[in-house]
């Protein structure tokens, strides 16, 4: 029983990370039609900026600065690189691919290729006993952050004017433009939001793995892609559901099966979902 509780909470912690990355990806894809390979870069920037100022500023301001830096990077990438290629989706994907290669190399040259030990608040290193299981507290930090983000994002999308424009844009972008609303500002906004969430994911991921490395974003990104496709492109709630399914499946199968079987089973789940339901669990058609 205690093993199941521990595995569940660890799986949910992983799911929280996936969700933070995938929700931004999903919004960016749903609205702007850009499959963003540079999302892993936003994640790493958030983590590294936090890491470099945490010594002098303290943890909370460092986290805020990291998130802000990642959001600024996202907005900047949209303004400078994505916007000139509007409607040319393949070129947009190619540019983000190039950016992900160059960006990781740039991070490596600034901070070195080796993993860095990432600081975490003292209480996150403690262990909490639940139903006989000894659960590290950082799991709750991740889950809590993801839940707050999920609720905040849903409220933002539902109750604000920009949220309305984004939802409408995901549904039918041409119609929103036809109504006289400049969707491109919303593009910049979702890139900034996606960047901020990815940066947060990078920081929390640094605390979870207690280390950061330039390539970390890329390996998390692939599972985030899987989550986005399973959840349905453009759907935040779908991404949340899919993240939980993927995180739990991965943890449980990795524990009870042989090493690596969990990762394989996630891909099998992806193939099954796409074959049975090409649009994902919720969201618009996954073609084009």
């Amino acid at each position: 029983m205690s093993t199941v509780v521990l595995l569940t909470l660890t799986g949910l912690g992983l799911a929280a990370l996936y969700f933070l990355i995938a929700s931004g990806l999903s919004l960016v894809f749903g609205l702007a039609g850009v499959l963003n390979f540079a999302h892993g870069l936003f994640l790493s920037i958030g983590a590294y900026v936090t890491w470099s100022v945490v010594g002098s500023w303290g943890l909370l301001p460092a986290i805020l600065l990291g998130v802000a830096a990642a959001a600024a990077t996202g907005a900047l990438v949209e303004l400078v690189l994505i916007r000139p290629l509007y409607t040319r989706h393949t070129e947009q994907v190619l540019v983000t691919v190039g950016l992900s290669l160059a960006g990781v190399a740039l991070l490596q040259s600034v901070w070195g290729a080796d993993a860095r030990v990432f600081p975490r608040p003292a209480w996150a290193s403690e262990v909490i006993g639940i139903a006989g299981a000894q659960v590290p507290a950082d799991r709750f930090l991740l889950i809590g952050a993801a839940v707050v983000v999920l609720l905040g994002l849903l409220a933002f999308l539902r109750y604000t004017r920009y949220g309305l424009i984004i939802r409408a844009g995901v549904e039918n972008r041409a119609m929103v433009s036809a109504l006289g609303i400049d969707v491109r500002n919303a593009f910049t906004l979702v890139f900034a939001i996606g960047g901020a969430l990815a940066g947060l994911a990078g920081i929390l991921g640094g605390m979870y793995f207690s280390a950061i490395s330039p390539g970390q974003g890329a390996s998390l990104l692939i599972f985030a892609f899987i989550v986005v496709v399973i959840g349905g492109l453009g759907s935040v709630a779908g991404a949340a559901g899919a993240a939980v399914a993927v995180g739990l499946l991965q943890q449980f199968v990795n524990y009870y099966g042989t090493a690596g079987a969990g990762d394989v089973s996630v891909v099998v789940l992806l193939a099954a979902v796409l074959l049975l339901r090409p649009t994902g669990l919720a969201g618009k058609v996954a073609t084009a």
Binding site: F225, V228, V229, L233, L274, L275, P278, A286, T287
Partner: peptide, 9 residues
């Protein structure tokens, strides 16, 4: 699948 979904799979 086709398009982006194909790339992802």
């Amino acid at each position: 699948t086709s398009g982006i979904a194909f790339s992802m799979v």
